[in-house]
């Protein structure tokens, strides 16, 4: 057996009386899409934030690519190869689509302390940025200010910026949210192919997408993982159906 790329070992996190993560253990293997599902407020985003380094777990540890990253900050974890998309789009709103993608490419390349040359004429960065933007279908919108984008386009840009990072693993917090049927139908096959570049820890409410994509599914309820397994096993799991999926999942 190969070792997991991302290994979350028994992390817990409370906000006052709310236990957002309770002894959560989870792994992400190379080449897989591991979906994390659960009702609103279950603690999915909180878990993603702890993995990305925005929040410190109260206890437990996070291992990535063979090392303990629990004490690293967001910046260091991004540099280590964790690429992230936010549940609520988090972009440089006053900048163009292309500038946001170039920023991502710049973060990956490093050498930020360059004061003289026009960064928007840097052929290497532009190439990475354009490639990522056309992959998500934003090639026609490169010059648009992010503030003028539609909600769906911002979601696409979130994914494109993560792509410019060529991360070792993706953390995606509801990339389909608000995309609509057509957007989801386009993003699903794209993520399907992406897993071969880097595995994805995918938080998602769209069950069609989840069951179409996931190699494994973990179900989070009130901060606890109540089940982890293959999609079929999860679909049949009585506890999961009661807590989250309901009966329609059977069909």
């Amino acid at each position: 057996m190969t070792s997991p790329l991302l290994d979350i070992r028994g992390i817990s996190k409370s906000f006052g009386a709310i236990r957002a993560s309770e002894d959560v253990s989870l792994t992400l293997m190379r080449g897989e899409i591991h979906a994390l599902i659960g009702p609103n407020g279950a603690g999915k985003s909180t878990l993603i934030k702890q993995i990305a380094g925005n929040l410190k777990p109260d206890s437990g540890s996070i291992w990535f690519d063979g090392r303990d990253v629990t004490s690293l900050d967001t910046v260091a974890r991004a540099q280590a190869g964790l690429g992230r998309t936010f549940q609520i789009s988090s972009l440089a709103m006053e900048m163009s689509v292309l500038q946001n993608a170039v920023l991502g490419a710049l973060g990956k390349r490093g050498r930020v302390m360059r004061f003289w040359r026009d960064v928007m004429r840097d052929a290497a960065l532009l190439q990475v940025a354009h490639a990522a933007l056309s992959e998500v279908g934003l090639a026609a919108a490169v010059g648009t200010r992010v503030a003028d984008l539609s909600h769906g386009q911002r979601r696409q840009l979130e994914v494109a910026v993560a792509l410019t990072q060529s991360p070792k693993a993706f953390l995606m917090d509801e990339p389909m949210a608000g995309l609509g049927g057509e957007g989801t139908a386009r993003l699903t096959p794209f993520l399907d192919g992406l897993r071969h570049r880097a595995p994805i820890l995918l938080v998602e409410h769209d069950m069609d997408a989840v069951f179409a994509l996931a190699d494994r599914i973990s179900v989070l309820v009130y901060g606890r993982i109540i089940a982890t397994g293959k999609p079929d096993a999860i679909r049949q799991n009585a506890e999961v159906r009661e807590a989250y999926l309901g009966d329609e999942a059977l069909t």
């Binding site: 990305a52 925005n54 900050d73 967001t74 910046v75 991004a78 540099q79 992230r84 936010f86 988090s90 972009l91 440089a92 946001n100 920023l103 991502g104 710049l106 973060g107 990956k108 490093g110 930020v112 910026v161 410019t164 990072q165």
Partner: peptide, 9 residues
């Protein structure tokens, strides 16, 4: 937050 997420401090 965006800048940190792409690995820039």
């Amino acid at each position: 937050e965006r800048v940190m997420a792409v690995g820039i401090a």
